[in-house]
Amino acid sequence: MQIEHDKVSGQDTTGHEWDGIKELNTPIPRVVTWSYQLTILFSICYWVLYPAWPYVTDFTRGLTGYSSREEVIDILQSSSNEREVSIATLFSLPIDELAENTAIRKQYETSASVLFADNCGACHGADLEGQTKFPNLKDEAWLWSDLPEEIEATILYGINSGHDEERYAEMTAFGRDEILTKEEISELVAYVQSISGQPHDEALLASGTELFEENCSGCHGDGGEGGLESGAPILTDNFWIYGGDAQTLSDTIWHGRKGVMPSWENRLSKADIRKLALYVYWQSHELEE
């Protein structure tokens, strides 16, 4: 083994030789070794400054005592303090007065639309037009009235949500629970189609009317005119959540319905919920200038 000096490159060889082939022992460029040493130095500083090493009962806290949880809690606290000032107007007046206030509407409508799309749009659609099973919020049909405070209560506590203050509404499964027969249900379907102005089977109407009075008017009101206290929809307006065709109506009466809207009380701030309630109200009510 012989280490030689190569004049062309100015480097030594490794001393290894294979059939006359020799290898230069060129060192790694300085900049690479230096940056490697620097990363080691950096990590040592990091260990000293930041939480790093675990030991049996705890871990080293570092000189800065940094905690990502503490940091985010503080950031959230300070931003909510800032927000408190800007949202003070939202709680300065009762919600029904805010709803009719043009300045408030101008100030909050745009940001509330983003809030709505993020949280409510999945079910009710970003355009508020709803979809099957999830009510349209832009039409004139309301389950629990369109008063701003009622909308706010619905968002806060939800419908059939399991919250203590929930709005509870359940339509009985008249077919499945053997309260009505298949024939009686078709008679009811005919009646519901007649009061909602749809084509229907005249022959079934008379008995359908009677059945409706006995079984349905308690919640849906006389003649299906509705009752906002019970959350039972008005049946005469031809707005439908599940559908107004004969098959869907028949399914609804057979299986019953129990739509769920989640409670947002623990998910959104009081101010955000108020903004959403106002937004929903504004989208279906033109303000008088």
Binding site: C123, K133, G259, M261, P262, R267
Partner: peptide
């Protein structure tokens, strides 16, 4: 959990 309904 609880953000949307079962139906959704």
């Amino acid at each position: 959990g609880g953000k949307y309904s079962d139906d959704w």
